[in-house]
Design a protein around this nucleic acid. Structure first.
Length: 560
RNA sequence: UACCCCGUGGUGUAAUGGUAACACCUCAGUUUUUGGUACUGAUGUUCCUGGUUCGAAUCCGGGCGGGGUAGCCA
């Protein structure tokens, strides 16, 4: 090891590990990410994944280090193979690799069982015949101690016999549990003789019908960690009160490894909900279109929305790790996304709300192929040819008949640049009988091909356009936050806080021809509008808006 | 009103007894063939109260505030 590392500027977890390495308590670092396969992974899990796998990668530069993926599959009633598969795919997509170290708590059932016989032999566990209701009633309350079970003083022989018969299936579901014998008067409720095993005749995705009893999390987790030689077992704050029980388990059975549990604050994000229960509810009740709905904070939803693993990892790094409850501004996530997409997304022109424009001084039938830069941030992205003709579509909102101050897009008599094309002046506004603008006519400056004024005159506004004859049609889905307020559910049922405009689907958008070949999974910028991403599930040409561009004009316009 | 944890700009995170910093947000400006990007600048912070100390965001006491915990869920 290097001389004592600088602990300054590091989060509290890294400081703990630094100290453990410096003191010689550990010579390696082993972490784990332990999801329960009862739902899809979300951005909050990404924080834990980046932390645990990131720690292994970081410390791996100096000492042996690794991170395990372990499924915490001890409750077959809620867990499914579909979730197991999705979780593995999501962790990989995020960019992490567990190598050989894929584990399941269910792999340890036999060892966990043997440890329980050991506990029984030490008079540290007993079989309780009370019902769940009776146990609840005798647990006491936050301010009152619990009451000992009448079965608490059974002999080790009797407990052993009963426990073996529990396993053998001699008793009905719920009729008995194995309990730790700790202290029914402990101020920590978790220590009031917690259940260790319960009888449950439910088929398990991995062990099938082999087990009729299943171990509890509080018992399974510390011992699974110990069996895998985990050095630092990182979990979220709500397990803080469980730590004494965690330590009790590893201290009282024959394992030689004593992992340390460290708790950190889970991620909360503005304008979204993060609990699996709520996300499952949104899916089941049809408020969204499945776990991978682009509005969901799930990794599969973010992926379908167009988020990149790089942006998510960057975000997880920037939010830091601490113990205080906090709510991160979703704008930071969006910032990380834009920063990444700005570097990599090729630019294209797309008109979402088309307004026809006729260029009067353009020879009928003439097509001019213009060179357009693919990405000003990346010269290697090259250029492409876009067709320019006398009949174009521009964005309806880029024209105003009576523009406000500071408006520098199109208006009657005003000159704008058609991106990569010509300088254009609107000379006539044609309306339908209802007074709605139907079409614009105008003239281009033939000497301004490419967009440069021949005499150097300043043209402030640049707008995007497509040639009507060449445009391809597409559906574009405009997403906003799923919830309308920063902290959904804070004041009332979270469903009431759902944003009714979280999805606006626009059909018959007019796109430049290159977009017909857009590939799902690769981002593209629609110039002046935002970053988009061809939907991976829809047939036909459908784009999801990943995130808008920053829009200072929208802000300016909002002021008045 | 039992036990545990946590209080630093609007938000998130640093500063580990020695000038309170970084990022996001907000605002103002420069550059710009995207009202994008980039760049510059500005506003704004240690919950309160005693104590220890030459010196406290940091250590100690007392308050106050927030969160967690009473599944045979994880």
């Amino acid at each position: 090891m290097e001389p004592t590392p600088l602990t300054s500027g590091r989060d509290f977890i890294r400081q703990i590990i630094d100290a453990d390495l410096a003191s010689g308590k550990h010579v390696n670092v082993v972490t784990r990410f332990p999801p329960e396969p009862n739902g899809y992974l979300h951005i909050g899990h990404a924080k834990a994944i980046c932390l645990n796998f990131g720690l292994a990668a970081e410390y791996g530069l100096k000492v042996p280090a690794r991170c395990h993926l372990r499924f915490d599959d001890t409750n077959p009633e809620k867990e499914e193979q579909e979730y197991i598969d999705a979780i593995e795919a999501d962790v990989r997509w995020l960019g992490f690799d567990w190598g050989e170290h894929l584990y399941h708590a269910s792999d340890y059932f036999q060892q966990l069982y043997d440890f329980s016989e050991e506990l029984i032999g030490k008079d540290l566990a007993y079989v309780d015949d009370q019902s769940a209701e009776e146990i609840r009633a005798t647990r006491g309350s936050l301010t009152e101690p619990g009451v000992n079970s009448p079965w608490r003083t059974r002999s080790a022989e009797e407990n052993l016999d009963l426990f073996r018969r529990m396993r053998a299936g001699e008793f009905p579901d719920g009729s008995r549990v194995l309990r730790a014998r700790i202290d029914m008067a402990s101020p920590n409720l978790n220590l009031r003789d917690p259940a260790l095993w319960r009888i449950r005749r439910a088929p398990h995705p991995r062990t099938g019908e082999a087990w009729l009893i299943y171990p509890m999390y509080d018992y399974t987790h510390p011992l699974s960690d110990a069996l895998e030689s985990i050095t630092h077992s990182i979990c979220t704050l709500e397990f803080e009160n469980h730590r004494p029980l965690y330590d009790w388990a590893v201290d009282n059975v024959s394992v030689d490894c004593k992992p340390r549990q460290i708790e950190f604050a889970r991620l909360n994000l503005t304008y979204t909900v993060m609990s699996k229960r709520k996300l499952l509810f949104l899916v089941k009740e049809g408020h969204v279109d499945g776990w991978d709905d682009p509005r969901m904070p799930t990794l599969s939803g973010l992926r379908r929305r167009g988020y990149t693993p790089e942006a998510i990892r960057d975000f997880c790094e920037r939010i830091g790790v601490a113990k205080r409850d906090s709510v991160v501004d979703v704008q930071l996530l969006e910032h990380c996304l834009r920063e990444d997409l700005n570097r990599r997304a090729p630019r294209r022109m797309a008109v979402l709300d088309p307004l026809p424009v006729t260029i009067e001084n353009w020879e009928a039938g003439r097509v001019d192929w213009l060179e357009a830069v693919n990405n000003p941030e990346d010269e290697s992205a090259g250029t492409r040819q876009v067709p320019f003709t006398g009949e174009l579509f521009i964005e309806r909102e880029d024209f105003m008949e009576d523009p406000p101050k500071k408006w520098f897009r199109l208006s009657p008599g005003a000159e704008v640049r058609l991106r990569w094309g010509y300088l254009f002046t609107c000379t006539e506004v044609i309306k339908d009988s209802a007074g709605r603008v139907e079409r614009l006519c105008g003239r281009i400056d033939p000497a301004s091909r490419g967009g440069n004024a021949p005499d150097g005159r300043k043209v402030k506004g640049t707008i995007h356009w497509v040639s009507a004859a060449h445009a391809v049609e597409a559906e574009v889905r405009l997403y906003e936050h799923l919830f309308a307020i920063e902290k959904p559910g804070a004041e009332r049922d979270f469903l009431l806080d759902i944003n009714p405009d979280s999805l606006r689907s626009v059909s018959q958008c007019q796109l430049e021809p290159a977009l017909a070949e857009a590939v799902p999974g690769t981002p593209v910028q629609f110039e002046r509008l935002g970053y988009f991403h061809r939907d991976s599930r829809a047939t036909g040409l459908v784009f999801n808006r990943t995130v808008t561009l920053r829009d200072t004009w929208a802000k300016e316009a909002q002021k008045s």
